[in-house]
Amino acid sequence: MRKLFICGCLISLSFGVSFAGNSVVVDVTELQSKLDRLSQMYGKECSPQEFAYAETYLETLKGGGKTGSKEEYIIESKLKECGPLEIGYVKTCIDSYKVTKKEEKKNIVIRENSVDTISYPVKINYYLSLVEKNIYSDKDGDGIPCYKEIEMGTNPDIADKKEEKNQFVAVGEKKEEKQPVVAETKEEDVNPLNQPVRVHFYFNRADIKKEYLPYLNVVAKFLKMHRDVKVKIVGYTDNIGPKGYNDKLAMKRALSVKKYLTKMGVEPDRVVIEGIGKDRYLVSNDNSVDRFTNRRAEFYVISIAD
């Protein structure tokens, strides 16, 4: 009996030692950076379920087996010289008191013996791979991957019509030819530049009205996604006023649109501006509504690289 007891003790001890010696070290930094990268590529929107699972398991793993986040703070205080029994100790003796949040370490390494340390990274990698797959997937079958649809502001679950390549003017063929895309497009097209992009202005003003900003945002997103597309913005005026002044005003209108697009992240060299002024009216200038229609800035696609 005693021999059996001693043997049991020895076996259990050896198990304990061997298990403690082979502690698993997991570097979470790589997983975290992968998750961050996928988050920037709209992983949360394209694949919410898998993203949530990956994020939760990672949070739990980072917590060292405990769930929830942990924040650390550094308290720095400087004391003046003063007597221990001085009245108003806190006010007079503390020179400065500063609380700062401790910065997270760049490499998060977890050393654990539990099974979770081994199984969680596998699960996280599995879910992250699913997220990545869903980001590039085309759920609605319109040929546009999910992340691009979200960038463009369209619904990834509803099919959009594919872009027609021949709507653009190819480089080298007819570079100078300007085609008003407005006239030859249909309403269902995904490309925002294929829709009638016109910004109208108040009389003698060049600032963009608020109601056009959402549409310009879509155009800016499209231009940021398609780096090979260049646009030309042409400003127009109505028939009131001298020609020289109207030419300048038309240029100002085109410039204000360019400035907004540049502010939204479009490279300035991809946006060319021109001021036409008192010319090429859309409608007659008989009444105020028609004149408002003519006071505009329009977009033209001028080149697409191969």
């Binding site: 919410p48 993203f51 949530a52 994020e55 099974v115």
Partner: peptide, 20 residues
């Protein structure tokens, strides 16, 4: 779906932890 999946994932973790 994101919030629901978070809840579901935490429930799975809770079950796994309880079993361990």
């Amino acid at each position: 779906p994101y919030e629901y999946s978070k809840a579901s994932a935490y429930y799975s973790i809770a079950k796994e932890s309880a079993s361990n």
